[in-house]
Design a protein around this nucleic acid. Structure first.
Lengths: 202, 202
DNA sequence: GGTAAAACATACCTACCGGTCGGTTTGTTT
DNA sequence: AAACAAACCGACCGGTAGGTATGTTTTACC
């Protein structure tokens, strides 16, 4: 069973997540967070030493959870395309708010400096791109993907997923499954018209 | 000849650009901007009614300029790949600060609400992605690109450019020209190993 | 070169926000 | 039920930053 304290902390983190996702770091006040989970500012400062620590704690909790979830999806011996497909599908299965976390970090990453910033970057790198990177590295080794830098390719893949995540995409590509296939096809085969490529054998 | 007022306005916009690029909107103070161009806060408020208006004015000026510059690059009758190449090259030729503007908008877009926000989105859309979209639309019509939604593909292309713009990419892909070819190749042909595709003719 | 208006500078106001602290409630132990 | 600790409240402080009011200089034009 959870103690009273754990419940409160969980509530605070949850409220903080919602607000930090909606607005920028500086535009979210501690009192707004407090009001959102029916406590006062004093209660938050009882559990967290500062606004910055609260933000980082919320990020860590969220990314750890997400990483564990997504990590399962690539733990298979399938080929590269299939592993990427499973990973993306699992990502799409996440509640919408959770998926926004990546954009959140890219947005607020300039708020902090020094150690806190490095910590943020590392935590982010370890969340999604690193998982993709692992799959891509294997894919290159197996000859399924063309040679290239795995990390750069993983960023490309993540960026592609982000594109499909935009509101506009929903009006063009309906349904999660077709979005996934869209991403995979574009990533593997590109946007060029393959039929234009001449077949070497007459 | 420029009047004194125009020079001051230009200085303010230039200083604002540098600071807004380096930090988040809320973390840039009016006094910092004032100090950066050797005036006082009062002078800024003489020319701009508010911080928000100053930010938007600086964005508009920058994007207008950039759009004019990039627009020339696609005004040719070359094929799709070549036009994209020229557009990207022109983009890479921009001073580093100017290239960061895209990321800036994506970062600060949540600061504003209502009309100001819509204005921001429209201005952004009209800057880079719309130019790419035009080229891609032609490319699809000419059969050079596989059928697909032009706008979504343009976002994909822009995202790819952004990936290559990251610091890490410099350590993997040296030189602007090879970055451009990397982007084009990945966009047109994808990351999949084409040699794996069986040739239908025996 | 004189003058009115534009273009600043200076000082100040006010709202807000992160953080603190004394005190109060609630729960637990003995 | 006394004693103690954990959890929480709410008023408050210090600093800050957007914005303004007013005085001063500079520009532009005659």
């Amino acid at each position: 069973m959870q103690t009273k304290s754990e419940i409160t902390i969980s509530n605070i983190l949850s409220a903080a997540e919602g607000l930090f996702l909606a607005r920028q770091y500086a535009d979210v006040t501690m009192e707004q967070i407090a009001a959102a989970c029916d406590v006062t500012k004093g209660a938050i400062y009882y559990h967290f030493p500062s606004k910055e620590k609260l933000y980082l704690a919320m990020l860590h909790a969220d990314l750890d959870e997400k990483r564990a979830l997504l990590g399962e999806a690539i733990a298979s011996r399938a080929d590269c395309a299939e592993r990427l497909r499973r990973l993306t599908r699992r990502f799409f299965d996440l509640p919408a708010e959770k998926r926004e976390l990546i954009r959140l970090i890219r947005r607020d990453i300039n708020v902090f400096e020094g150690a806190a910033r490095d910590d943020l970057v590392r935590t982010y790198q370890a969340s999604l791109p690193e998982l993709v990177e692992e799959v891509i590295r294997d894919g290159i080794a197996a000859g399924e993907l063309a040679p290239g830098d795995p990390r750069l390719l993983s960023w490309h893949f993540v960026a592609l997923v982000e594109v499909v995540l935009a509101d506009y995409a929903a009006s063009v590509i309906p349904g999660a499954e077709s979005k996934i296939e869209y991403v995979l096809n574009l990533f593997l085969n590109g946007a060029g018209n393959q039929r234009n490529g001449e077949c070497p054998c007459p």
